[in-house]
C-alpha cells in the first residue's frame, strides 16, 4: 500500500465519500465487469449501461481509469524492453544449426513419401534379381 493517488484523480470529487451505487442504485461492483469488458472498444455500452454511467459518478471515474489503463497498455509496445546484444547472433546461429533438419522435421509427409519410395525401389530391385535368378535356374 503506497497511498499514492494517481494524477487523474486530483481534479475529481472526493470519491471516497460516495458509496458505490449511491447515485443510481445499481450494482456498481457488477458494473465494473462491464467496464472491464468495454474498455478495449470491443463493444459499446447499451442504453441501460449508458443510463447507469450518466447517473453514477463512481462508475464514470472507473471508466476513465480503464481508458487510461488501455492507453498505457497500448503504449507498452512502444517501450521496448532491453535486449541482449548477443541475441541476434544467437538466433542466427540457432537457425544455422537446426535449419538443415527442417525438411524432415517439418514435412513428415515428404519424409514418408521418400521413405516409401526408397522401400519400393529396394523391393523392386530384390524382386527383379529374384526373377532373374529363377529364370537362370530354369534355363
Amino acid at each position: 500500500m503506497t497511498g499514492e493517488t494517481p494524477s487523474s484523480v486530483t481534479s475529481s470529487p472526493d470519491m471516497a465519500q460516495i458509496p458505490a451505487g449511491a447515485v443510481s442504485g445499481l450494482d456498481c461492483a457488477a458494473f465494473s465487469d462491464v467496464l472491464a469488458e468495454t474498455a478495449g472498444g470491443d463493444r459499446s455500452h447499451n442504453s441501460h449501461e449508458v443510463a447507469h454511467l450518466e447517473s453514477c459518478l463512481r462508475c464514470r471515474v472507473e471508466q476513465s481509469r480503464y481508458r487510461r489503463l488501455i492507453q498505457a497498455l497500448n503504449s507498452l509496445q512502444e517501450a521496448p524492453l532491453p535486449t541482449d546484444p548477443r541475441l541476434e547472433s544467437q538466433i542466427l546461429m540457432y537457425l544455422d544449426r537446426y535449419a538443415d533438419r527442417w525438411a524432415w522435421d517439418a514435412k513428415p509427409r515428404l519424409a514418408a513419401k521418400v521413405a516409401a519410395g526408397a522401400a519400393a525401389a529396394a523391393g523392386l530391385i530384390a524382386f527383379t534379381a529374384r526373377q532373374r535368378r529363377i529364370a537362370k535356374l530354369a534355363s
Binding site: M1, P6, V9, A36, E37, L73
Partner: peptide
C-alpha cells in the same frame, strides 16, 4: 481472462479511492 486481467491491473495500477493499491 482478458476482463479479469484488466480488472486486476486497473485495481493495482489505477485504484479508485478506497481501493487498496498494492506496491
Amino acid at each position: 481472462r482478458l476482463h479479469r486481467a484488466r480488472r486486476r491491473l486497473r485495481e493495482q495500477v489505477l485504484p479508485l479511492p478506497g481501493e487498496q493499491q498494492q506496491s
